[in-house]
């Protein structure tokens, strides 16, 4: 994850309390989604950014996951996201995200 974004995630978690935060991702594929999820839960796996070694354990979802999709207005979802469900490998994204959440999510 971009270093500046890591800095912002860290600062916002401190400001609002990590239990009040939800991170929503739009990554193009499973592995990238998993890496971003890992960054905001277990810490930056590349050890390059401000979240290296920082285990925030934030709640994190990809926007195409059913947990998010079920709670948002379906008309807006259709207009903004639905086409990409045909483009992205949503199953693979869900699999990667669930694995990371099960292991590292604290909230």
């Amino acid at each position: 994850m971009d270093l500046e974004n890591q800095k912002r995630v860290k600062a916002l978690a401190e400001q609002y309390g990590p239990e009040n935060i939800i991170v929503i991702l739009g990554a193009a594929e499973g592995e990238a989604a998993g890496l971003a999820a890992e960054t905001v839960t277990a810490g930056d796996p590349t050890y390059a950014g401000p979240l290296a070694g920082v285990q925030l354990g934030l709640k994190v979802y990809h926007v195409c996951e059913p947990e998010v999709k079920d709670e948002v207005d379906s008309a807006v979802y259709d207009e903004q996201i639905s086409m990409m469900e045909m483009v992205l490998d949503v199953d693979d994204i869900i699999k990667e995200m669930s694995t990371i959440r099960d292991e590292y999510c604290k909230y």
Binding site: N5, N20, I21, I22, G26, A27, A28
Partner: peptide
């Protein structure tokens, strides 16, 4: 919730 959004140019912006 307070949402932090990390979109992707080649996924969902």
């Amino acid at each position: 919730k307070k949402a932090i959004i990390i979109g992707d140019r080649d996924g969902i912006p």
